[in-house]
Write a protein that binds this DNA or RNA. Structure first.
Ligand SMILES: [Mn+2]
Ligand SMILES: [Mn+2]
Ligand SMILES: [Zn+2]
Ligand SMILES: [Zn+2]
Lengths: 136, 136
DNA sequence: GCATCTTTTAGAATAGTTCTAATCTGCTTG
DNA sequence: CAAGCAGATTAGAACTATTCTAAAAGATGC
């Protein structure tokens, strides 16, 4: 249906406390309408421009940071000099394929990590990231 | 043979296929004479300059990359926009303290990771990184 | 000590990201 | 539905980490 619009994304953005501007709706559509994605600012910018919606790179960066802060995305750091943003915000871990730079999810519920030492004095656990680095 | 110098580091560099230049020896001394370290290019540059050995930042970057390629260091990526270099090249994992940016080792031999899926088709396992993110 | 090849260096260049400040737009109010 | 306003977008500058360039200096082998 989408009588021209995207009520779902509009609503989702509003629920996250973000105005559903045209650019944010276009970005949200690209990010969230299929399955889970891992994008960089540049790759997302290229994709959204291909939909003929003009969006500046600065806006892509702004939106990615806002979406992450709102809990719609999660940031993944696996390689120096580039940030990935992940539409899968649930618990999971990653394969990182070098030198391609591809990221693949795997569920964390079948993975057992035992014997982790307790956090250093004065700190609290925030998240455990497992990155399985593979190469061709 | 240079009495007063650092024959161990000279030798270690030579063994790694690197000429023991003054700059590389000075850097190796700072890096390897104490216990294990995690440094950035900037932090190492500051440290070595404090020893009154003039070394350019470009040389620090060159040396870090060469040391890593030679297996003397390992590169750790935990935060966007900065690379850490680790003098501990054995198997181990990391605590990453935000927002300080501190890295702490913990041994991997007491940690058990079970249930990891097998690598994607056409890839081979290279390394498994566990990053325990903590905050104050 | 000389020749040769390597390394260092200052500064320019590059890549990813953030900032600035001017313009525009979504939303509320009358 | 017209203002009015706060919030968003944008081009381009700025910034940070890193790499590159090409010229000068240094290490090594003879
Ligand atoms: Mn960011
Ligand atoms: Mn590097
Ligand atoms: Zn993911
Ligand atoms: Zn370490």
């Amino acid at each position: 249906m989408m009588s021209g619009n995207s009520p779902d994304f509009t609503e989702r953005l509003r629920a996250a406390g973000l105005r559903p501007t045209r650019q944010r709706v276009a970005l949200a559509r690209v990010l969230f309408e299929g399955g889970h994605r891992h994008v960089t600012a540049e790759s997302l910018h290229a994709e959204v421009k291909a939909t003929r919606m003009p969006v500046s790179l600065a806006t892509v960066y702004n939106a990615l940071n806002q979406f992450r802060d709102a809990g719609l995305l999660r940031e993944v750091v696996v390689a120096p000099g580039r940030s990935y943003f992940d539409t899968n915000t649930g618990h999971h871990h990653h394969f990182y394929v070098e030198p391609d730079g591809e990221l693949h999810d795997f569920p964390s519920d079948k993975v057992t990590i035992a014997g982790l030492p307790s956090p250093p004095k004065g700190t609290r656990l925030s998240r455990v990231d497992v990155i399985v680095r593979v190469h061709r």
